[in-house]
Design a protein around this nucleic acid. Sequence first.
DNA 1: TGCTGATGCGCG
DNA 2: AAAGCGCGCATCAGCA
Length: 893
Amino acid sequence: MKRDPNCTLCPLHATAEYVCLLGQGPRKPQAMLIGEAPGQREDDSGRPFVGRAGMLLDTMLADAGLSRSDLYITNAVHCRPPGNRTPTKREIKACQHWLNYELATVKPKVVGILGGVALLATLGLKGITKIRGRPIERDGIVYLPMLHPSYILRRDCIDQPTGEQDFRTLKGIIDFGGVPEEQELNPTLVDTWAKVDQMIGAMHGVVSADIETTCLYPWAAEAKVVMLGVGTSSGEFDVPAAHKDSPWSQNDLAEIVERITAKLEDCFTVFQGGKFDCLWMRVHYGVEWHNDFDTLLAHYLIDENSHHDLEFLARLYFGAPNWDIPLEEKQGNTSLKVLGKYHAHDLFYTRRLYFKLKRELDKDPQVRRVFTKLLMPVSNLFVKMEERGCFIDADKMDNAEVYLRHEMAMAHKKLIRWGDINWASPKQVGELLYSKLKIKCPQKTKKGALSTSESTLNQINHPVVVDLIKFRGHKQQLSFFVEGWRPFIVNDRIHPSFKLHGTVTGRPSCTHPNFQQVPRDARIRSQIITSKGWELIEADLSQIEMRLAAESSHDPEMMQCFQFGIDIHWRTLMSSLESGAAYVDEVKKTVEVYCMQQGLSADGPSASILLKVWTENKGRSETQKLLEKWKTRPSSGISEEAEKNLLRALREYSEAVRTTSQKRKPQGREAIKFSDAMQLLSYIGPSRSIDILPDFWPEKRKLAKSQGFGFLFGMAAKKFVQYSRDSYGIIINEVEAQKGRKHFFSLYSSLEPWHRKQQRFAREHGFVRTFTGRKRRLPHAQDRDDTYERAEAWRQAINSPIQGTASDLNLMVLLQLAEEFPHVYPTITVHDSILVEVPTKDVERVVLRLEEIMKGPQLLKAFDIKFSVPICGEVKVGPWGSGVSLDKWRKHE
DNA sequence: TGCTGATGCGCG
DNA sequence: AAAGCGCGCATCAGCA
């Protein structure tokens, strides 16, 4: 192959080591592969595709049964662009001369186009991710657009299965000597009653079901089902619905749907993302379709890191051709024939995927159990949940809007004194602050821009930041939680959409709108209420992630806290105050006020007696009973009843000792020792202490709480410095933070060994599991080098099982509640809590039962899970975010 | 004009 | 030595 080392077609010749680096390969290659441009390594070695991308290429080739030695491999651009940037359009065009020369010389029958640059150079097309995998014939050559190995690496190998499939498709084309014939489906268009009978007759065993709609939101004005149908062992049936060419009237359709629905009861119905179809059928036809097997959810459990759309799965498992049609056509704006063909492909591949994915699930019984016992039931329940939606208080929304607009206007008025710019633009704000106002920028963004984030602003001592933060906050609340919600309101209700496959850990996610990010601010949150005759109930699992971390690590200190009902964050706080001898005044003050409230003097002897009595009582058997009760009151340090008894005993002791000691020691009062005060404070607990110093303890406890969550999951001291500063205005240096971190891990001494254990497991197996058996695949955990990715994967190995198990527990509670009370309506799940609408007359029953269920849902047995750490939850009645306990609710009722 | 990525911020 | 995890949405800016 000739090349021109003196080529000057484009400016690259000036910087490239090798000018005009042509491809390499045998005389009559099976196919030609075209990449992007030489990188540094290629430029040095004079060969295409070396380094990491080259290794990945070899792996994928081998996987497909191909070998580099049978292929001619070249690049679209033949000189290395400086700094490894992507070649520009001009460079691509300039180099096309050489590419054409190579194509003419090698004369390949099959060309693999690797990536967008090669696609542009060879076919002049854009959008590689959309058209990849589909062969294109031109001038007797079959071109296959494929993902570039570098792209796959850049995207963290999420698309590796897709890339691998591309190479299998390439192999198929080489072997077949052209594009393999597509499997021609022959769907039946159900347009006569005889064909309806035929369809019903064909429905038995495994049946796939699917619908096509005009849009995604079933309550939209234009929402219509355009086509519905079933896939059976004897073919696919398309029933035209709200289509211009449909022969069916509304009544006809109602009857057909009725017959399909009845027949599906006897079938094993499979869907791809069936929550969507079942919801639409409920809303538009009032029928209940049961989803027996969801191919999307099945694949989510098989590989949570990749995509789960039908096209992707069909191509991944079967090398299926692309049968997608433009969006408008899917929405009904095409002939019944075209739409029917598309729909039939959906039905065919959904059904086919069922058999494949069932086998895949069977390979891992633990994962299969999550699927059948948790995911599928929840998916069917979510249909009802989304259909119900959440009731919105229109008046509260109006009030919130007025308030937010006013506050925003006030803040903005103050802001424009500094400059009349777009205060919502980080760039413009940055210029104004750091150039015009000459404030020194304390922090840059990851990309190097001058940061204007709240965390950065907090470090600036300038009047402008106060108003800026206010302005931003109110603007965001307004656009998210008022204006953003209004378009979704239908008859005073909003129907958010939940994705059971929304996260890699197993938590559901929520969109349109996202009700899992509603501010805790009562003004916003209590916009969500329920209709007349009903009450809204929120049940949340208390400190569930902490409890599960205790369970997983078997940390004795943590376990003890939960077993004895001691507030874990209070414990953390006490311990850190103790070790640092910090906030002595506040500690003593709290104890003194407490003792005064109890009619005791807080002097040394009195306090030590209090301690002694408490400690002795803890050991007595009768106190054991009290301790049992503590378990149900995790929010306070000591139960009311226990406290009353102990205080009674104390007064007796105290009186006795005082009379004797006064005889012996008539001196004045002795100050309480810090260590005694600390110990007393531990017993007093957070809620009483907060009553005494409400400006001090809540913030301290919050900080300890965040310390807990941060350190528990691998946060470094440095970040904690930043965190305390940003969220609490507490300035500590890195040494202090490091000390705090060390102290945290010495208090909960089993945590670090537990971290190492999880990391070892991930490193050895490449995945970790939740208690329920869900897998979290962490390929980077097996990286040989100590990269950021590996450290990240190792932290995920600690977090995922906890987060995932907590979420699964929450779903178990939800399922059991729905099963026991079919007439209550779940409306939202938020990771460790559920919101339920309950008829007013049933509130008492449901609340009490929920408290029981949360201590241990039945499903745990089915999963062979037995916790030694007690689990419990808290239930509140009333508008979201301002609900009250059952006791308080009863009084108001 | 519509898409993508970055930034920023709400939640658990 | 250094290292929280998991989301969705509005907005802006740059690009084609």
